[in-house]
């Protein structure tokens, strides 16, 4: 259990996209604000701050989680992954990201990092999903631009390609 400093902040250490990081956060600080303000991760998008829209979704120990419903200090000792974890270190995009591009699965792109996090976790568990299952997974996210069509196509295509690979 980390100690509070005299400025009311406590140290928080976790593995962020594969690298150990340490920062300082007030107990009330949200993980969204911590990742954006303290860690400089602008891919954390804040859409509603009440857990409905899913734009801020990250993976915590592999499972999708809402960063806006998580306090920064809850990340202590965990593994946190953002959309940066998907592409190769050289910058080559993952099959999922490329499929999103191919199928125009994004327009403004604000919801996209969160959706990629849920989708990547989903495809690890469900290797051969039906369209209904993909839509059910996507229903944890709001996209106001695309009508979800491109995303469904992209995710199903990635699943098929991974099976045949």
């Amino acid at each position: 259990m980390s100690q509070l400093n005299n400025d009311g902040r406590s140290s928080v250490s976790f593995i962020l996209n594969g690298n150990p990081v340490t920062g300082y956060a007030e107990p009330r600080m949200l993980l969204t604000d911590f990742l954006r303000e303290e860690m400089g991760l602008t891919e954390i998008h804040v859409g509603c701050e009440h857990g409905v829209c899913g734009a801020c979704t990250i993976r915590m120990d592999g499972l999708p989680a809402r960063a806006c419903l998580t306090f920064a200090i809850q990340a202590e000792g965990h593994r946190i992954d953002t959309v940066q974890s998907l592409a190769q270190p050289s910058g080559v995009l993952s099959d999922l990201q490329l499929a999103f591009r191919k199928h125009h699965a994004l327009q403004c792109g604000y919801c996209t990092p969160g959706i990629l996090m849920s989708s990547s976790a989903f495809l690890e568990i469900n290797h051969d999903p039906s369209e209904e299952e993909v839509r059910d997974m996507l229903s944890g996210h709001l996209c106001r631009c695309t009508g979800y069509v491109g995303m469904v196509r992209a995710i199903l295509e990635v699943a098929r390609n991974r099976i045949s690979a």
């Binding site: 602008t42 959309v83 990201q97 591009r101 994004l106 792109g109 990092p113 990629l116």
Partner: peptide, 14 residues
């Protein structure tokens, strides 16, 4: 394909 997408998909669009 869209020229905008690489940045958005990588989370690097500002």
């Amino acid at each position: 394909e869209r020229v905008e997408d690489a940045q958005l998909l990588a989370g690097q669009a500002l």
